[in-house]
């Protein structure tokens, strides 16, 4: 058995009216996949932001932790989106992510602190990690309109808020490393650091404490980041940090 165990920070379960290929409808389906890939635990959100259904699935196994989906859309300037953070904490969830709606009338996803500052502040108060899709940082995607400068602004304004960027493209590696050096609570997953030796270079530069394992099942194949880490030229302790130790530490700090 390897000396490191995986805790996946980026998994979706659930069904919706519009099926997706290879979806994992419930906790049982997810646990089967986790066993296949040797993943010990998963931080899971439920499709379409159905947090209550997600909570029911998470209760089925202590290998599943719920990631709460926060709404992004302000319907009026008086909307109090931060109240959803309170609900999340009451429900026992320890991490949050946003749900981007992409209907024709939905506004673009804008992460700027002047719109969402109170949400960030409330998450920071609980030290609850915020997970953000990394794809829009590389290339505009759907309604998402944010870039590295927005991440920089969030981390500068809320320095104790753990921010986890998911599936960031390998071509942004240098910029990410620079930002990670600047912000002590910025993290990213290594799913797309697929260039030869790239993961080792990142660890050499910023240490193993800022890199997490996130598969983005059931959209992407988790075997690539697992194979990359298992064969990386890193110490077992560093592999353990990346595979699951860093995520566990972040979740343990949530109050």
């Amino acid at each position: 058995m390897p000396a490191w165990s995986y805790f996946d920070c980026d998994v979706m379960i659930g069904t919706s009216r519009i099926p997706i290929r290879d979806e994992m409808p419930d906790a049982d389906a997810l646990l089967r996949e986790m066993d296949r890939y040797g993943i010990e635990k998963s931080l899971v959100y439920y499709r379409d932001g159905a947090n209550q259904r997600g909570a029911r699935e998470a209760e089925k196994s202590d290998r599943i932790e719920l990631c709460w989906v926060l709404p992004l859309t302000l319907r009026s300037p008086e909307d109090r989106l931060e109240a959803h953070v309170d609900r999340m904490i009451e429900a026992g969830a320890k991490a949050a992510r946003f749900l981007a709606s992409d209907g024709p009338s939905d506004p673009p996803v804008i992460l700027k602190p002047f719109l969402l500052g109170r949400v960030y502040e409330r998450l920071q108060k609980h030290r609850a990690p915020l997970l953000l899709e990394g794809a829009p940082l590389y290339r505009p995607e759907g309604t998402a309109r944010y870039g590295l400068e927005d991440i920089d602004a969030i981390c500068s304004s809320f320095p104790d808020l753990p921010v986890i960027l998911l599936r960031t493209h390998r071509s942004l590696q240098t910029q990410l490393v620079m930002m990670t050096r600047k912000h002590r609570h910025l993290y990213f997953t290594h799913a797309l650091n697929t260039l030869y030796g790239q993961l080792e270079t990142v660890v050499k530069t910023i240490g193993a404490g800022r890199v997490l394992f996130g598969s983005q099942m059931p959209y992407w194949d988790p075997s690539l980041p697992i194979g990359m880490l298992n064969y990386a030229d890193l110490a077992n302790e560093q592999k353990q940090q990346i595979a699951g130790g860093n995520l566990q530490r972040l979740l343990d700090q949530v109050s």
Binding site: T194, L195, Y196, G197, Q198, L199, D221, S223, L224, P225, I226, G227, M228, N230, Y231, A232
Partner: peptide, 9 residues
């Protein structure tokens, strides 16, 4: 690319 990732698939 990193060969370990490719073999894992």
């Amino acid at each position: 690319l990193s060969p370990g990732a490719q073999l894992a698939k």
